[in-house]
């Protein structure tokens, strides 16, 4: 499988990365070189093989369902580029 320039633009949109028109051909080439190399995996017969979900077989740890830390809005907001009254500020999203 390979990607064309339309697909490159679509992936960039999905990934929320602005890609200028003149950068598309180079990206197309780079992504296809990687995808072409990955094609090697088609040599392997994986019929009936379970996809891996965890490298170490252990029971999922569960914490007690209690509040163990909280009340730290100042800490949470400390690195925000824009905030007001413990809210993150973003450009208007609803009219």
């Amino acid at each position: 499988m390979s990607v064309d320039q339309t697909t490159v633009r679509r992936i960039a949109k999905l990934a929320r990365i602005k890609v200028s028109e003149d950068a598309v051909p180079a990206l197309e080439g780079e992504l296809n070189a990687i995808l072409e190399w990955i094609e090697m995996l088609n040599e392997v017969d994986t019929k009936g093989v379970q996809p891996m979900t965890a490298v170490v077989e252990t029971a999922m740890k569960k914490r007690d369902d209690v509040v163990n830390k909280g009340g730290i809005p100042d800490d949470i907001m400390a690195n925000a580029p824009a905030s007001e009254d413990h809210f993150f500020m973003v450009p208007k999203v609803v009219e």
């Binding site: 992936i11 999905l14 990365i17 990687i34 994986t46 891996m52």
Partner: peptide, 29 residues
């Protein structure tokens, strides 16, 4: 950016099984 885009592509609708599931099966092997 290159890796985010490859990752976005292999997880996108229609390609998930061909890439991601296949890779996780190979990981099992």
């Amino acid at each position: 950016k290159r890796r985010i885009m490859i990752g976005t592509y292999v997880l996108s609708a229609g390609y998930y099984d061909a890439y991601y599931v296949k890779a996780q099966q190979i990981r099992t092997l």
